[in-house]
Amino acid sequence: MVRLTSLSRSVAGSVVIVTGAASGMGRATAHLFADEGARVALLDVNDPEAVVGEIVAAGGEAAGWVLDVADPAAVEQVVAGVVQRFGGIDILVNNAGLVAPAGIGDDGWQAAWDRTLAVNVTGQALMVRAALPHLRRAAAPRIVNIASTEGLGATAGAGAYTASKHAVVGLTRSLAVELGREAITVNCICPGPIRTAMTAGIGEDDKAKFARRRVPLRRYAEPEEVAQMTLSLSLPAASYCTGVVLQVDGGLRVQNT
């Protein structure tokens, strides 16, 4: 059958960097890209070799690096290693992040603020800077930054995290404007309540109560449901979509009460 359309929905053969890939949404994202035939570089402050092993055992192509994205020299070194291993970079998924709750008057506020902003915002910018020369040579270069619905609202006692996710939204929009002339798309995903390590400490009853009260779909999402949206924004066919802030939150942000 002759195709009637011209834009590709395949990432097969593409080189994809996923930060924070050792667990949660990053792990799911790495799995999904590998399932779709991409060659995946898994980066994490914790050793991602277990996830690399899962992908390779399933017939995918992957390699892992230990990386603190807040370390500029390490970022440059690891990105160079990815290019040496795979030959280039087509897609960058900035997923690494952390939450360190601390109220503005708490003794630990300064440390929480500094580390959260360093990882959640500066880390994304450092990854873009290091990957940019290689993305410029890609046929369909894509950057997807992971923020949060905290980037669209606020929760008491989480000022550092909330500020960092608002900053990711702003960084995404700025980079979309700056890099648009080079056909590099930059988009952002704002996950809502997801079953990850960040929410593992919340009891199941409390999760269910929150979901019934705040989420129209009345449940927490699985990490793959976010990963699927990340993949969609990374497709060659997503060529006219940039500067987008996509909520993956079960309708949380559109419900008034």
Rank of each mutant, 00 (worst) to 15 (best):
V2H: 12
V2Y: 09
R3K: 12
L4W: 11
T5R: 12
T5Q: 13
T5C: 07
S6E: 13
L7G: 08
L7Q: 14
R9G: 11
R9V: 10
A12Q: 12
G13H: 07
S14K: 15
T19K: 06
A21L: 07
R27K: 15
T29D: 06
H31D: 09
F33H: 04
G37Q: 02
R39Q: 12
V40H: 07
L42D: 08
D44R: 10
N46I: 05
P48G: 07
E49P: 00
G53D: 14
G53I: 01
G59W: 02
E61L: 09
L67C: 12
D68M: 03
D71W: 09
A73C: 00
V82F: 11
R85C: 06
G87K: 09
V93M: 10
A96H: 12
G97L: 10
G97W: 10
V99E: 15
I104H: 10
D106E: 15
G108H: 11
G108S: 14
Q110P: 00
A111F: 03
A111N: 09
W113A: 07
D114E: 15
R115F: 04
T116H: 11
A118L: 06
A118D: 13
V119Y: 11
T122C: 01
T122I: 08
L126R: 12
M127I: 03
V128N: 03
R129Q: 15
A131C: 15
A131K: 04
L132M: 03
P133W: 05
H134D: 02
A138M: 01
A139R: 13
A139G: 07
I143V: 15
I143D: 04
I146D: 03
L152F: 00
A156E: 10
A156I: 04
T162F: 01
S164P: 05
H166M: 01
A167S: 12
V169I: 12
G170M: 06
L171K: 08
S174R: 02
A176W: 05
E178D: 15
L179W: 14
E182M: 08
A183Q: 14
V186F: 06
C188H: 05
I189L: 15
C190V: 00
G192V: 02
P193Q: 05
R195G: 02
R195N: 13
A197R: 14
A197V: 02
T199G: 06
G201P: 01
G201C: 00
G203T: 07
G203H: 02
D205G: 05
D205C: 00
D206W: 01
D206M: 01
K209H: 07
F210R: 07
R213Y: 02
R214D: 08
V215T: 10
L217W: 11
R219L: 06
Y220A: 01
E222M: 10
V226E: 06
A227L: 08
Q228H: 11
L231E: 09
S232T: 12
L235E: 03
A237P: 10
A238T: 02
A238V: 02
Y240W: 12
G243C: 08
Q247T: 13
Q247L: 09
G250R: 06
G250V: 02
G251P: 04
R253D: 08
